[in-house]
C-alpha cells in the first residue's frame, strides 16, 4: 500500500496548509520593517486568513488551531495573552453561525461580511485591552489598522483562493 501512504501524506500536507499559512501570517506581521508608524497599524493578516478559511474550508481550520494562532499572536505582539485568542475564536464562531449565509456568495458579500466582523473584532479588542490595562488606549491607531485590514482583504483573499484552488481542490 505504498501509493496509499504517499497519497495520504500528500493530502495531510496539503490540508495542513491553511493552518500553516495563517501561522506564517502571524510571523510576517511582526517582521521589523522599519517603516515609521507601520508597526502601529500593521493589518491584521491572521484575522483575514481565519475569516477566509472559516468561510471556505472550515474543516481544515478547527477551533483549536484558531486558539493556537491567537495565543501566538498575543505572545509575539506583546498583547495580554488570551485577548487575540478570544477575539479570533469569536470571529470564527460568528462566521460558522453565518456560514449558510456567506458560503457561495459573491465576493462583495464576503468582503462586506468581513468588514462588519473585523470592525466588531477591532472594537472588541480595544475594549478588552483597555479593560485589561485599566486605561483607555488611544483608538486612532486601531481605527486605521481596521481600515487597512479591510482594504487589504481582497488582495489577501485572492491569494488564499488561488492557493485553495491549486492545492486543496474543491470542498
Amino acid at each position: 500500500m505504498k501509493p496509499g501512504v504517499l497519497y495520504r501524506l500528500d493530502l495531510l500536507a496539503r490540508n495542513l496548509t491553511p493552518f500553516l499559512l495563517t501561522l506564517l501570517f502571524v510571523f510576517v506581521s511582526v517582521i521589523p520593517l522599519q517603516i515609521p508608524g507601520l508597526s502601529h497599524i500593521i493589518p491584521l493578516l491572521p484575522l483575514m486568513a481565519i475569516y477566509h478559511w472559516a468561510v471556505y474550508r472550515v474543516e481544515l481550520l478547527p477551533a483549536y488551531s484558531v486558539f493556537i494562532i491567537g495565543i501566538l499572536q498575543d505572545i509575539f505582539t506583546g498583547a495580554p495573552i488570551g485577548v487575540n485568542a478570544l477575539v479570533f475564536l469569536l470571529v470564527y464562531g460568528v462566521v460558522l453561525t453565518q456560514h449558510r449565509f456567506l458560503f457561495g456568495k459573491s465576493f462583495a458579500v464576503i468582503w462586506v461580511g468581513f468588514g462588519l466582523i473585523s470592525g466588531t473584532a477591532s472594537a472588541l479588542t480595544w475594549i478588552l485591552v483597555s479593560a485589561w490595562n485599566v486605561a483607555i488606549i488611544d483608538p486612532s491607531a486601531i481605527y486605521i489598522q481596521f481600515l487597512l485590514t479591510f482594504g487589504m482583504f481582497p488582495g489577501v483573499a485572492w491569494g488564499l483562493l488561488r492557493w485553495q484552488r491549486t492545492f486543496l481542490g474543491s470542498s
Binding site: V30, S39, H40, G78, A79, Q145
Partner: peptide, 15 residues
C-alpha cells in the same frame, strides 16, 4: 538585533 517589531496598536515592544 531587533528580530520582531511587536508594535501593534496595543503594546509597544520589540524582541
Amino acid at each position: 538585533r531587533v528580530i520582531a517589531d511587536a508594535g501593534g496598536a496595543f503594546a509597544n515592544s520589540v524582541l
